[in-house]
Amino acid sequence: MPERPHRWGMTVDIDRCTGCQACTVACWAENNITINTQDIVNERRGYYWIRIERYWEGESPALKVRFFPVLWQQCANAPCEPVCPVYATHRSVDGINIQVYNRCVGTRYCANNCPYNARFFNFWERWPPEPMNNYLNPDVTVRSKGIMEKCSFCVQRIRRTERQAAREGRELRDGEVQPACVQTCPTGVFTFGDLADPNSQVSQLAQDPRHYRLLGHLGTDTSVIYLKRIDP
């Protein structure tokens, strides 16, 4: 336990996003997410821990395409937390909304109450088919039917890095922890770090005049901070 609790956060620079979906794939591989087959998508039960939303602005030829990565917002004031009857989702000391799969009974109240629509329910038991199960990440639980799941900021990586640092007897370095999406993004859209540390790169970026939060009027105080796109 560090003396000063972390508050893990992320900035998302929309200006850099090209909509290549590499983050989505990385997230899928890292977190053992169910494969979004055609059936699942047609049932409207797809799993996108991080998704690239695509918006069209204007008419051709002045058409503009906006790409907009939406992941779980890690609200400090999360609407999903108090409504869970069994503490399956609650806030950890280092500022992550953790989802405890063991405790979840699947009331799905949190999904209703999430204004960002970032929670996913396991409607079926989905064990990956034969060769695919060899891809599974051993650090991450495969979720059974009837429970909620969502982006965890790759908590397994955070913990691994923390353990590593503790073994080496040092503090965590800024930028040492990298969730899968951050690591993969070719254009560096995401910056991950400790928002409680004023000198970290992510805190610096969060001060950027372009910063804003999604659905800020709800007062959810998210840990994911977006940086606005400025059209040339």
Binding site: C84, Y87, C104, V105, T107, F121, K145
Partner: peptide, 30 residues
């Protein structure tokens, strides 16, 4: 309606005296 009805005892009956894990009284579902 719950996803895992067999686990509902966590929710409706606070039974877990050993681990000190209690249901969240903040939830309307409690």
């Amino acid at each position: 309606h719950a996803g895992r009805p067999w686990r509902v005892i966590y929710w409706a009956l606070p039974y877990d005296f050993n681990r000190g894990v209690w249901p969240s009284i903040r939830s309307p579902l409690i």
